[in-house]
Simulated scan of single mutants.
Amino acid sequence: MQIILYLSVALIAIAFLVLVIYLAKTLRSLQGTLTSVSQTLTGLEKQLDGVTSETTLLLQKTNALAEDIQHKSESLNSVVDAVKDVGTTVSKFNGTLKNITNSVDVQVEENKEKISQIVQWSNVLLELKDNWKARKEAKTKISPAEGKKVRAH
């Protein structure tokens, strides 16, 4: 019975030794894997530092661009206001011209008969002027003997 007990203890010791050997191999494999993961994380950390610095620069440029756009937008607002004022002025001017045109049309319509009379009197005056010139030329004659102009008084 003692032999069985020694054999059992020996068997347990051998099983424990095999377990320790496999556990050591697993731990060494795990150590290699963890070393590889550590190196990968170091590389990722360096890349992340590069990305972070580039992101910071990009953010600074974006902020500068946003400020520039804001400044130009404010400048453009004053131009838009000026154009709006010009448009309002032109619109008022057009309204004034329209009112003046309407007023002139109304005055012409109201004074149509007077205008017609003025045109008739103007025609009469022009006719009188032409008749007067014709009489004046008829009174002025050239004398055949003297070759001079003679005026009849």
Rank of each mutant, 00 (worst) to 15 (best):
M1R: 09
M1Q: 06
Q2S: 07
I3N: 13
I4Q: 14
I4V: 14
L5W: 10
L5S: 10
S8T: 05
V9K: 05
V9T: 12
A10S: 13
A10P: 00
L11K: 14
I12W: 01
I12Q: 03
A15H: 01
F16L: 03
F16K: 00
F16H: 02
L17P: 00
V20Q: 09
Y22T: 15
L23D: 14
A24H: 08
T26Y: 08
T26E: 04
G32Y: 09
G32P: 03
G32C: 13
T33N: 10
L34Q: 12
L34H: 12
L34R: 14
T35C: 02
T35N: 07
S38W: 00
Q39C: 00
T42I: 09
T42V: 11
T42S: 13
T42W: 04
T42Y: 10
L44M: 09
K46A: 12
K46P: 05
Q47L: 12
L48F: 13
D49L: 01
G50Y: 01
S53F: 03
S53C: 13
E54N: 15
T55S: 12
T55W: 06
L58T: 09
L58I: 03
Q60R: 11
K61M: 00
K61T: 02
N63H: 15
N63E: 15
N63L: 11
A64S: 10
A64K: 06
A66P: 01
A66S: 13
E67I: 11
E67T: 11
D68L: 04
I69N: 08
Q70I: 02
S73C: 15
E74Q: 15
E74N: 10
S75W: 02
S75V: 07
L76W: 03
L76Y: 10
L76D: 04
N77S: 11
S78T: 04
D81M: 10
A82G: 01
K84C: 01
D85E: 14
T88S: 05
T89Q: 10
F93L: 14
F93W: 13
T96I: 04
T96G: 06
T96L: 04
K98T: 15
N99S: 12
N99H: 06
N99L: 11
I100V: 04
I100T: 09
T101H: 04
T101M: 03
T101D: 04
N102H: 07
S103I: 01
V104M: 01
D105N: 12
D105F: 08
V106A: 10
K112H: 12
K114N: 13
I118S: 05
I118M: 09
I118V: 07
I118R: 05
I118W: 05
V119R: 01
V119M: 00
S122N: 06
N123L: 09
V124A: 05
V124T: 08
L126C: 13
L126E: 12
L128E: 05
W132P: 00
K133N: 11
K136F: 06
E137T: 08
A138T: 03
A138H: 08
A138I: 02
K139I: 06
K139S: 09
K139Q: 06
T140H: 14
T140G: 15
K141N: 07
S143C: 15
S143Y: 04
S143N: 15
S143T: 01
P144M: 01
P144H: 01
A145D: 11
A145T: 10
G147Q: 02
K148S: 02
K149I: 06
R151W: 04
H153C: 09
H153R: 08
H153M: 07
